[in-house]
Design a protein around this nucleic acid. Sequence first.
RNA 1: CGGGGUGUGGCUCAGCUUGGUAGAGUGCUUGGUUCGGGACCAAGAGGCCGCGGGUUCAAGUCCCGCCACUCCGACCA
Length: 477
Amino acid sequence: MENKLVREITSMDVDFSKWYTDIVKKADLADYSSVKGCMVIRPYGYAIWENMQKILDGEFKALGHENVYMPLFIPESLLQKEKDHVEGFAPEVAWVTMGGGEKLAERLCVRPTSEVLFCEHYKNIIQSYRDLPKLYNQWCSVVRWEKTTRPFLRTSEFLWQEGHTMHETEADAREETLRMLRVYENFYKNALAIPSVTGRKTEKEKFAGAVETYTIEPMMHNGVALQGGTSHYFGDGFTRAFGITFTDRSNKLAYPHQTSWGVSTRMIGAVIMAHGDDSGLVLPPAVAPIQVVVIPIAMHKEGVLEKASELCEQLKSFCRVKMDVSDNSPGWKFSEYEMKGVPLRLEIGPKDIAQNQCVLVRRDNREKTVVPLDNLRGEVERLLREIHDGLYQKAAKNLGEKTYTATTYEEFLDIAKNRPGFIKAMWCGDRACEEKIKEDTNGVKSRCIPFEEEHLADTCVCCGRKAEHMVYWGRQY
RNA sequence: CGGGGUGUGGCUCAGCUUGGUAGAGUGCUUGGUUCGGGACCAAGAGGCCGCGGGUUCAAGUCCCGCCACUCCGACCA
C-alpha cells in the first residue's frame, strides 16, 4: 500500500478504534444523535444496508420464508413466559411505563428480540401438522440497553432481520437451523467477501432459551472476532411454555419445534473492519452503493463530458454507477471515493478519448488498467469479480495467519497475551474452564465448537482432564 | 457500572497556567483561473466557547454540579 492519501483518517496501526470511528464519519456512513447510544444511519450507510437486505431477503424468500411485522412492544407478562429467555434479556430491556400521560396498568418492554411475540401469534394460527412449517421473517429494529456503544457494532437500537420458524419435527427444525446458518455463511463469503469460522456455541455462550446456538464468527483485520450472525434451535421449550400445540399425523396433540436466526447492521461494521485500510472504506462490489465512479478529467475540454456521460449510461445497464461532475479537482475526487470505498474508478480524459480508451483503477490495490472502450463491459465485470475474490483471499489469509494452536496452557496464555487472533485448543466441556480462561486472559472467550473438529490433543488445554471438543477461542467486539 | 481523556463557527484545533473586545486552518457562499493523486486568486457569511449554578467590576479561562462523546476494563449481538 502506498502512503495514505487521506490525512484525516487515523492510521489503523496507531489506533484501530479511532480508525474505525473515523471511517464511519468520513465515509458518511453514520452520525451521532441526541439519543444516547443511538445513531443516525446516513444515506450512504443505509444504501449498503439496503443492498444487504435485498440479497438476503431474496435468499429467504427462495427458501419459502414470508415477511411479517410484529409489534414494537411486549407486555411484561408475555416476556416472562419463558424463564431462561427473560433472565437473559431482562437486564438490557427498555420499559415503557406511561402512555398518553397516564401510568400503564402493565408496563411494556421495547422488543429486544421477538420470540415471545411470534409464539403468541403462532399459538393462534397453528392447529394441524398441515399448518407446518411456518416460516416467518421480519425486518425491524430492536432495542437493547447497552452500557457502551459503538456505531454499527453495538448500539442501543439496531436494525436487523429475525426469522422465526415452527416445524413438525425436531429433525426439520434442526435442519432449518443449519440451513439458515449456511445462508449467512454464504452471504458473508459471496456478498461481503468475508471468510469465517462457523460452529456451535458452548452452553455458556448460547442464546437465552435456546437448545443450541450456531454462530458465524468472522475475524476482523486486527484479529478480533465479531459474532456475525446466529441461528438457534429452540426445541419445544417455548412452544410448551406458550401452549402451542398441533394435531400430528397420528391425530395426537404435539408441540412444534422452533428456530430463530438473525443478522444485523453490525454486518456493516464487519465490512469496515475486515476490508478497510488507511485510506478509508473498501466495499465488496456486491453491497457497494456505487460500484463504479466515473471521474471526467479536464471536464471543460470539448467532448469530455459527453463521452463520460455516454460511458455512464452504458455502465448503468449492468452496474451501479455515479459520475462526479463537481468542481473539485480530480485528485480530490480520487481521495473522496477511495474514502467511501467505491470498488472501481473510471477516469476518462482527452488523451483517452483520442485513443478510444479509459483508465480503470481498483480500490483494493490501486492497480490501473487501460481499457479499450469497445471492451468496457467485459473489463468492468471482470475487475469487479477480481476485487471480490481479492478481498476474500486477503481476509482469508489474515484469518489463517492469525489462527494459532495451543496444546498447553502456558502456550495458550502466551498467545492470548501477545498475538491477537483465534486460538484453537481442546476443551473438556466444563463451563468452569471457560470462566477460568476468560479470567486468566482478561477476556478471551470460546467462539465456537467448529463442525469439523481437529484432534489437537487428548486433554483440555486448561484443566488437563479428558478433552471433549476442539474450540476456537478469541476476543470479540 | 468503574478508571482516564475531550467538549470553542460544519470539521480539526489554538486560546485556559497568569480572568480584560472570539482566533487559525479547513469547509461553506459568490466571481474568476484551473483540472491524469486532496489546485489557485479575490470578496463574503458563519460562534448562548456542552448545559446549569457560583466567585468577580469583569468568566471560554477560576470553583461546584450535570450531560455528551471517546478510550481502557466489567457486561452484552
